[in-house]
Design a protein around this nucleic acid. Structure first.
Lengths: 374, 374
DNA sequence: TTGAAAGCGCTAACAT
DNA sequence: ATGTTAGCGCTTTCAA
């Protein structure tokens, strides 16, 4: 930087002003400095900037596992959102373990990152309350009375789950398994609320609760292919009868469909399947997967925007930001064939509702995602 | 740090020694300092460390798209390898565009990261040669006479592709399409070599080249579901007859299987399919996918280890490090049913070869991956 | 609008 | 085995 200053015949102060886009620099000076920068291929030293300013220009995203399709897609979108706003994203993996989630929350990388987007699974509300408020943090997922004073960005899991199961019931299914109801390992994760929505749909239809159809996919390998396959296999071989499965994500749904096939049954004829996430592959499975599609783009952008506002000094308050979703009806639920005569082109989805942008929970009732489904 | 030093009754120097694990500190002093650190919740400032040492403890991984399953899995493994070695990973996306790959190579984040693992696709050998040798770099993928003086970590794409197609030919298939032969957009990417291996297998079998079966999946959305689906659909509706497809990755294979189904044909009965990558989903597709499984763990560890060696000052030389692979035979190629009577449990793979660790190209001939397949 | 100088928190050379 | 001190590259008061 000193070299640049010398070459341009100005002080380091002026170079700094030019680099940071300060206004009060004469056009002539700016040009001279800029050409000196170009000739010397000068790059500001980020560490020095950080040391001086107390900011790194890096934000963190902590997810259970980057290789899980949903989180891979989310990381992609968050990275793009961050990049558009001129900050760099650092992705961390927690393995959905409470220990590592706590570590991240307590500021494991607090000196590297200016802020954190955390997708908690095993964390408890008490952990959230106990945390030292070190670093600006936004939580992905719905608030369940945490009291941690943190901002939550999510979708309405209860409503969407309710709609998914209602969709299956409407198609005449009566024995709907809920696959992924791993309440023991899932504290702040989505299982609790998805199961709640599922139960509501049964209530709405005047059907009894069916605890024997609330399927846990195992402690280890949470929501993994292997554990889901084993759980569904067990259900089919030694469990009660089933005519539909509402799987709490698409990974579970894929494994379930495979287990159903292995048992000599067909999807959707014998057992209808609905998933959650609408990962890129879902439209290309055979049969194509009917699934709940969260508005991932809105979630990513909202989380980043709000986090950057916090980093810039905005006061944090416990608040819930709700993004939209839609139930994408394809083949695995059996509706498309029945209603429309079997459109099999996966690029033309049957959409039951439009995606809406994020909205505050306070005025959710007026937003698109509350309109009754057709 | 000064506070810690004061509280422990030592100098900052000693605190620094304790933090960095320096040897010559008496146990007593170490204990005192450590408790002061704990009481004050002291965390060393990474920016200051970086500024002083000229290192950040962060390495970068640049991939085309983090949401692509193979790269998501790879990022996971690289992150773990980095984490085990005490460094933090920063993932960047290039979109497989030459422009952004060049940007990364030229040190876009050179002040944030100490080194770079780059998975180039659109980059040319000339780009590699032209780069200013700013920052320690390891390339993922096979060298094709780059002359850039960089270390390459990869697998033997030609041999594996040859084996994949040979496997299909051995099963009696004669019209094997190569799906993903996108030579125009793929300079340093794997398409060229996989196609070469495919052609070799045809040669080996005494069959003529079949250029009309070398399928490009389109310029936009390189190796995407959508473009692959469209390409395969076109092949089936208006192309020459086909009885097998060797797809250059599993995403293509999934899309191909869907297009085959949509055309009213069956896998593997009418058309056998082989993929590449063995992504986590592959074993759970129906039919389960036969696919080439690169030793991702070895690739990740090797790349990180070698990069850290470079960061530590080791001289770089153009060299090729080759990791192992295996052809995982499941259902989509039709071999399992024919040979074994239809084992359908996806967790029990039929492995044709064992994974081998990385080996230098010089002694590849003696490593496990060169043994003839059974 | 620009210059001079202090200091962010840490580490390493030099001392003791 | 530990203390002292200079300085990494930048931003930012304070002056001019």
């Amino acid at each position: 930087m000193r070299d640049v200053a010398a070459r341009a015949g100005v002080s380091p102060r002026t170079v700094s002003n030019v680099v940071s886009g300060y206004v009060h620099v004469s056009d002539d000076t700016r040009r001279r400095v800029q050409s000196a920068i170009d000739e010397l291929r000068y790059r500001p030293n980020v560490s020095a900037q950080s040391l001086r300013q107390g900011r790194t220009g890096i934000i963190g995203l902590a997810v259970p596992e980057i290789a899980a399709p949903y989180f891979a897609e989310l990381a992609d979108l968050v990275e793009q959102a961050a990049s558009e706003r001129g900050v760099t994203l650092l992705v961390e993996q927690t393995g959905a373990t409470r220990e590592r989630e706590k570590l991240v929350l307590e500021g494991y990388h607090s000196n590297v990152i200016d802020g954190l987007v955390l997708s908690p699974m095993a964390l408890t509300a008490a952990d959230l309350r106990a945390r030292a408020p070190e670093i600006p943090t936004v939580l992905l997922g719905e608030r369940i009375e945490t009291g941690g004073g943190l901002l939550h960005v999510s979708m309405d899991n209860v409503a969407a789950a309710r709609e998914a199961t209602a969709h299956l019931l409407r198609l005449g299914r009566r024995r709907v398994a809920a696959v992924g109801a791993d309440l023991a390992t899932d504290n702040l994760g989505p299982a609790v609320r998805r199961l709640a929505g599922h139960r509501q749909a049964l209530d709405d239809a005047g059907l009894p609760r069916q605890p024997e159809l609330e399927i846990t996919t195992g402690r280890t390998g949470r929501w993994s292919h292997r554990s889901a396959y084993a759980a569904v296999e067990a259900l089919l071989t030694s469990g009660p009868p089933v005519d539909a499965m509402f799987c709490f994500n698409d990974v579970l749904a894929l494994s379930a469909m495979r287990a159903i096939h292995a048992a000599g049954l067909r999807v959707p004829d014998d057992i209808a399947v609905v998933g959650w996430d609408d990962i890129a592959e879902a439209a290309y499975y055979t049969p194509a997967l009917t699934t709940v599609r969260p508005d991932k783009l809105a979630i990513a952008r909202t989380a980043v925007d709000r986090l950057l506002a916090l980093v810039a000094g905005e006061r944090s308050s416990e608040e819930q930001l709700t993004c939209g979703y839609e139930l994408v009806v394809r083949e695995s639920c059996g509706a498309a064939a029945a209603e429309r005569g079997g459109d099999r082109v996966p690029t033309r989805d049957h959409r039951r509702r439009r995606t809406s942008g994020p909205s505050r929970s306070e005025d959710r009732a007026t937003s698109a995602e509350r309109s009754p489904s057709t």
